[in-house]
Design a protein around this nucleic acid. Structure first.
Lengths: 336, 336
DNA sequence: TTGAAAGCGCTAACAC
DNA sequence: GTGTTAGCGCTTTCAA
């Protein structure tokens, strides 16, 4: 690693460092010939601007940090991809932080803004990675957009689907198929998304004149293992439900696995529906019926909103709700 | 975002900025009472050091950048997790770069070191994200460790499994089961891993006195779609193989999907084995037989090696080979 | 034990 | 059109 700086370029080109800087940033403010000289010198000495110097001076890092709860979840991938595209187009690099479910990790990555290594944050969490005590308000926070969870803090823009409606739609699909005894394996109930989906479930059941016994609602987590454990619990009950609404595809996959292990066929004996529409879902046997989240749209919107904020524009709303879609595949059917 | 700096702390504590800095970094070089004053002032004004200033001065960012080829692949997750643990313990933050298969993206993230935003790179690629023309040698590169691919450039440490042996073992498993007509769906043949696995396959076949007709070797890519297309091609042939060795679990999953769609049962009609052991594999029906990569070990080793380099120590070897393991589940069986 | 001051690499007034 | 210079926020000699 040679340590060539702007001075080396200046020396080589026989101009001042200011001219080098100008030639690189504001090409038109510099004579054609000089510019050429500078560019040649840059090439010759192999100069890459030290961004620390630039950022320190301009108070702008050109980075945004994206904090994802868990890298394992393939649901994120589509979001990130879209989001990177937008950021890129605006001249920002995306630094990914894998928080691995830990709040301290989330905060650590968020601190990249306080330490000026990033200009803004796109978060996918149900909580803010900041100490909000001491009357700290949204205005005091770094530029921030939250995805996939509506956290309901004024001034914090959130991008997500209508989870209540999603819960309703999934349930309605099962009801339409003829199911009357429907169980639920939720995500972490600390998340607004799970809370809303559960409400949506209840609303659909009520609307259909169906009961939603509490024993039919198993608390989980958005991961495979929760599906396994949830299915187990449900199977231990005297009467078995004829359908299970899982709050994520991973849960659904775990549940189906355990169901199958216990000798139940999906969907013949028990129907299962998930949420997310992760890429692997279609490859399963049976292919997973699910509620598809518009990942590209979510990523796109999150990034665009953050870009707005970064430009100093204020946002019109706090909640940006994107359309979801029921994807009927093979894991749901009429009750046997 | 208040912009409090070290000066504010100094003013508040009634000391110089130098003393503040000392109190924070070298607590013992400062009188107990002064230290206390400083710490209180830090608290009072809400000071977070601007890392740009620190890094600029110390020429050390405290970040490492991890460049992954594709976020979608859950195979990475376990690696990253282990790797973050080690980096963390050494006081480094991990910045993830999702290259999305693009070489220019890889280079862009690698450039974080040239622009001093990261001190080292952990790469998972078959190619170096640098222009190596002009006689640029490994010594000229930033601290770098490559994972999952042995790229064979002197001076570049690589951490991976013995892909030749893995290919051999997978094939051998199929042969032991009684298969004689074995097909292969490879990964991208530009990768050393795929090349080695293919050689391992051929070696096992040869050793067993079995032929490996070229028509049985379909070139793919490490993704679902490659499995689908590969299976299709194989199914179009006059004689069908009784087993398929897929160079990744995703390929295997795609292949099984297409096989099933065409009315073939796995493993009764055709056996399928993958490589990687991604988390979702066990949930499939049939559960995926595969060669397990030691993801935690890979991440751990990559990080530890990079930490060594960052400390200025030179590495004893270029290749670090970690043990893989055959995981027999349900997608392979004796030919029908 | 503490402080003054130089300087990391760069940009942006401002002067020439 | 180009150069001089101050200074972004911090650490670190060196001197007091």
């Amino acid at each position: 690693m040679a340590r060539v700086g702007i001075k080396d370029v200046a020396a080589r080109a026989g101009v001042s460092t200011a001219t080098v800087s100008h030639a690189l940033r504001n090409p038109d403010r510099v004579a054609e010939a000089t510019r050429k000289k500078v560019l040649e010198a840059v090439e010759a000495v192999g100069y890459t601007p030290n961004k620390l110097g630039v950022s320190l001076r301009t108070a702008r890092s050109g980075n945004i940090v994206v904090i994802i709860p868990d890298l394992t979840d393939t649901f994120n991938a589509g979001i990130i991809k879209a989001l990177e595209r937008v950021a890129h187009r605006h001249g920002y690099s995306v630094l990914l932080g894998d928080a691995q479910g830990s709040e301290s990790r989330e905060r650590e990555f968020a601190a990249l803004t306080e330490s000026r290594q990033a200009d803004g944050i796109i978060l996918f969490s149900h909580r803010l990675p900041f100490d909000m005590s001491g009357g700290r308000k949204a205005e005091d926070l770094p530029p921030l957009v939250n995805g996939c969870e509506i956290i309901g803090i004024p001034g914090i823009p959130c991008v997500a689907i209508d989870d209540h409606q999603a819960g309703f739609d999934a349930t309605r699909h099962l009801i339409d198929l003829g199911h009357t005894d429907i169980a639920v394996i939720t995500g972490d109930m600390v998340t607004p998304s799970s809370q809303s989906r559960l409400k949506g479930f209840r609303a659909a059941m009520a609307e259909a004149g169906l009961g939603a016994d509490d024993s039919r609602i198993v608390q989980g987590d958005y991961i495979f293992e929760a599906g396994e454990r949830g299915a187990e619990k449900l199977l231990m009950q005297k009467h078995r439900p004829s359908a299970i609404f899982c709050f994520s595809d991973e849960i659904a996959i775990g549940a189906i696995y355990r169901l199958r292990e216990q000798g139940f066929r999906v969907p013949e004996d028990i129907s299962v529906i998930g949420i997310d529409d992760i890429p692997v879902g279609k490859y399963f046997d049976p292919p997973l019926t699910t509620i598809s989240q518009p990942t590209a749209d979510i990523g796109d919107t999150c990034a665009k909103l953050l870009m707005q904020i970064l430009k100093g524009k204020s946002l019109a709303q706090d909640e940006y709700i994107l359309p979801h879609q029921l994807v009927v595949r093979g894991s749901t059917a009429a009750p046997g």
